[in-house]
């Protein structure tokens, strides 16, 4: 079966200002299945945001293609919703109008009442109800603004939802609440999500799969780590799960050491360049139908 989203050998080079070229990432390839929640982790400068912009259609790669649902991604589209780190709400519109702005763009044929009802429903799903929705973004806290932004994105049912460090500017407590809200709304919508973050715990809580990038320049997607913790997940309970620290340690090791070691390694010709799949599962092997599975195994897909 063809993957839902397929990113093939994406390369981005920028002029480095001294006449030469800087290769941010080279031959980055990965796939995302329908309904999957995929998080990409990596150090600053490895080009995560550039990949995000390419997926959104806001930037063009130097080479490589992105194919979504059988079609090549060219330019921005309503099929790919984006939640930006700085919320990107229109400050002259109220909260409700901001969400309606998106809904109207998606469904130009709807009546004003339909648009408003739909927007109100999605604002309620992220916990914004009552008077708050008639306030301007400047009158909302950072956390509330990001909820509006999430509601606007989900209300449009994009085929792919892109989250660019959506919680980066929020304090830890607010971040936790909104992560729960994101999980809640994602659980109801079966939305395919691709998200950037710097936060390992956030990644484990939210993701089905975590893509790990090596350091830039010439970064690539090196590993795809499956999160073998059943859903629904809860921030206080997942830390009790036997797999939690095993996965977390693997991620910390990668980001702390291996991302540097693997950096800048030239990709061999003919290599598929797909990330190495890593599955860590310490739960009782008796539960596993394919018994005798080693606790830690790396599989080249």
């Amino acid at each position: 079966m063809k993957p839902y989203l397929s990113v093939e050998k994406l390369t981005q080079r920028f002029p480095d200002g001294t006449g030469g070229e800087l290769t941010v990432f080279e031959n980055a390839s990965f796939r995302v299945e329908k309904g999957e929640f995929v998080v990409i982790l990596g150090h600053s400068g490895c080009g995560k945001s550039t990949i995000m912009n390419i997926l959104a259609g806001l930037a063009d790669p130097t080479s490589g293609v992105v194919i979504m649902d059988g079609q090549e991604v060219k330019g921005p589209s309503l099929d790919r919703g984006v939640v930006f780190q700085n919320y990107s709400l229109l400050p002259w519109l109220t909260t409700l109008k901001n969400v309606m702005f998106g809904v109207k763009a998606r469904h130009p044929e709807w009546t004003k009442k339909q648009v408003e009802d739909h927007a109100t429903k999605f604002l309620a799903m992220v916990g914004l109800e009552g008077d708050v929705i008639h306030r301007k973004p400047s009158q909302l806290s950072g956390g509330m603004r990001q909820r509006v932004s999430i509601a606007r994105a989900f209300a449009n049912h994009p085929k792919l939802l892109l989250l660019d460090e959506p919680f980066g500017a929020l304090d830890a407590l607010t971040r936790g609440t909104i992560q729960d809200e994101l999980l809640n709304i994602w659980g109801q919508m079966e939305q395919t999500v691709f998200m950037i973050t710097h936060d390992i715990d956030e990644a484990i809580l939210l993701a089905d799969r975590i893509l790990l990038m090596t350091n830039g320049p010439k970064a690539r997607v090196a590993e795809s780590v499956e999160i073998t913790i059943p859903r629904p997940r809860n921030r206080t309970e997942i830390v009790e799960h036997p797999n939690y620290y095993a996965i977390r340690n693997h991620l910390v090791q990668f980001l702390g050491k291996r991302s540097k070691e693997l950096a800048g390694q030239p990709t061999e010709a003919g290599q598929t360049n797909a990330p190495e799949t890593v599955r860590i599962d310490l739960t009782d092997p008796a539960d596993d139908p394919e018994d005798k599975r080693p606790a830690l195994k790396a599989v080249n897909s």
């Binding site: 589209s77 984006v82 998106g102 449009n156």
Partner: peptide, 20 residues
């Protein structure tokens, strides 16, 4: 960012000019 919001919502140039 605001122009990008218009772009990701597939607004045409005229619509972008007037609404954003």
């Amino acid at each position: 960012d605001w122009v990008n919001v218009a772009r990701t919502h597939e607004l045409g140039p005229i619509k972008t000019a007037f609404t954003v």
